[in-house]
Design a protein around this nucleic acid. Structure first.
Length: 345
RNA sequence: GGACGGGUGGGUGAGUGGCUAAAACCAGCAGACUGUAAAUCUGCCGCUCCUUGCGGGCUACGGAGGUUCGAAUCCUCCCCCGUCCA
């Protein structure tokens, strides 16, 4: 899932996203709540209509902002009190409020509000966040089911496993959430500081407990060379800002590593970003031209870079699906590790 | 011919006796980015030497002299640039 926090994937139009084959976008509850406001979006016909996106939308709950905006919030058992980074106003986000906002937005998948903490974290802190996340999930689930009864929602709600880097806490979290019978489950609070091996270990601990006939979603990952690892573990869904953000910063992905397009070595390079890539950028523009756009700080740099990186990620996932179909995901995974580590020519 | 104002590292431009190899910004070079406070952030950015250290040497604030323990900073002359007056 490409990330479109503020109802836009930075640098790409909705038609471009459709053409790239994007099936589902991630948008953000907290950010859309602050601006332009969920009631406004409801009045505009819901998020799909508002942003003209006919395909699926998953809305994150604001749980990640508990982590990323740690300096601007205070957390209590009731919910999270944010100091808005936009206007300084104080905003209270509770599990119920997060549901309410997402119902107003009308996303296809709504995430429960969770407490995402930095890793590594002390065990008692991890335990506390886990317990709160479970309690919030219970409240969010109850509130959602109530809303569903009243409003005939075309929306699903996913729970989020926490537990930092403690295997037993992760398992405990999963078991508690299973009682709430979510139609899909996410693993959150990973890739927030711990090494990749530990991310895999934690995801692996939990994945086997979660029903394989329902989507299992690892939140906020990952680097290109990590995607196949996660899928190998049983992960069905992922989202990440990396392809879009890195693109804006001049980091372009290829099948053989990253091209830091601002580097002087690419100034007169007539080749495309990735000679194996079939995207609209690689079939048309040279590295030299792209480097020029980035150097000159042109808008088109971000647009073309993002287009390529999103294409690259989607293509990576296509290849992974293909590998699964052919029964050689393990080989694909190790091969891609090697290729991506090789570095661009 | 005269009167002012000014000449600082690739650029703009601070600095008006020591804490200055010289602020800041830009450019340049390299790096980071994982449920987006990110078109952001970080490091390097005179030359050179090595036992890589808050290390040594050299060169540097238009030019040449001078004052001073010490000068980008003060003095003298010269050369440029701008504005104005003749």
């Amino acid at each position: 899932m490409p990330v479109g926090t503020a109802a836009t994937v930075k640098g790409l139009s909705q038609s471009a996203l459709e053409d790239l084959g994007v099936q589902i976008l991630l948008c953000n509850t907290y950010h859309l709540f602050l601006r332009p406001g969920h009631e406004l979006i409801r009045q505009m016909g819901g998020l799909h209509e508002f942003m003209s996106w006919p395909r699926a939308i998953l809305t994150d709950s604001g749980g990640y902002q508990v982590f990323s905006l740690a300096k601007l919030r205070k957390i209590t058992d009731d919910g999270v009190r944010f100091r808005s980074h936009l206007d300084g106003s104080e905003q209270l986000l509770t599990p119920e409020k997060a549901v309410q906002i997402q119902v107003a937005l009308g996303s296809d998948i709504a995430m429960v509000l969770d407490e995402c903490i930095e890793t590594p974290a002390p065990r008692n802190q991890a335990q506390k966040a886990l317990e709160r996340t479970t309690k919030w999930a219970q409240r969010a689930r109850a509130f959602f089911l109530e809303q569903e009864k009243q409003n005939d929602l075309a929306q699903m709600q996913f729970g989020i496993v926490q537990g930092a880097t403690f295997a037993d806490l992760r398992r405990e979290s999963a078991r508690q959430l299973l009682e709430l019978d979510f139609p899909g489950y996410a693993v959150g609070g990973l890739a927030v500081g711990e090494p990749h091996e530990l991310t895999c270990e934690m995801a692996g601990e939990v994945i086997t407990l979660l029903p394989s006939d329902r989507p299992r979603y690892l939140m906020g990952v990952g680097k290109p060379e990590q995607l196949a690892d996660y899928v190998s573990l049983g992960i069905d869904m992922m989202d990440c800002v990396l392809p879009t953000r890195a693109a804006r910063h001049g980091c372009l992905y290829t099948g053989y590593g990253r091209v830091l397009i601002r580097n002087a070595r690419y100034a007169k390079d007539p080749r495309p970003i990735d000679e194996q890539c079939s995207c609209g950028v690689c079939t048309r523009y040279s590295r030299g031209y792209l480097r020029h756009l980035f150097s000159a700080d042109e808008l088109l740099a971000a647009i073309l870079g993002t287009h390529h990186n999103v294409h690259f990620y989607l293509d990576m996932m296509r290849q992974i699906r293909e590998a699964i179909a052919f029964g050689n995901l393990a080989k694909f995974s190790s091969d891609s590790h090697e290729r991506l580590a090789a570095g661009p020519s």
